[in-house]
């Protein structure tokens, strides 16, 4: 087996990949996330964000006071679309649909 050191196991992102992103000029956590894909899998950064921060500190990329987590977004725990859909049926204030830019045709 090839020896690799991972930052993010969901998307197979290694320390080497993060170093390459830093080399290409990406310096912030948001940028490195997008360029390498780290933190975009099922764990959403729960496992990999802190190791990346530690790496950035070691590389002297950002002072620790400048480190900010990438945007926290729902869901922070697993919820199924079925449970959410049933929530909508019970909700009284669901608006009627209008057309969307994706569905727009003019």
């Amino acid at each position: 087996m090839t020896t690799r050191t991972f930052i993010c196991r969901c998307e197979d992102v290694t320390v080497k990949d993060c170093d390459a992103a830093i080399e290409a000029g990406f310096e912030t956590i948001e940028e490195i996330k997008r360029f390498t894909g780290m933190g975009t899998g099922p764990c959403q950064g729960r496992e990999c964000m802190v190791p990346l921060c530690t790496l950035l500190q070691e590389r002297g990329v950002e002072g620790s006071d400048a480190l900010a987590p990438f945007t926290a977004r729902p869901p922070a725990a697993q919820i199924s679309l079925g449970a959410l859909a049933d929530g909508a049926r019970e909700s009284t204030a669901i608006p009627t649909p209008t057309s969307s830019p994706e569905g727009e045709d003019s």
Binding site: G41, Q44, R73, P74, P75, I79, S80, L81
Partner: peptide, 11 residues
């Protein structure tokens, strides 16, 4: 079938 699927991110 999407009833049994889970979102991982909403933005």
């Amino acid at each position: 079938l999407a009833r049994a699927l889970h979102p991982v991110r909403q933005w």
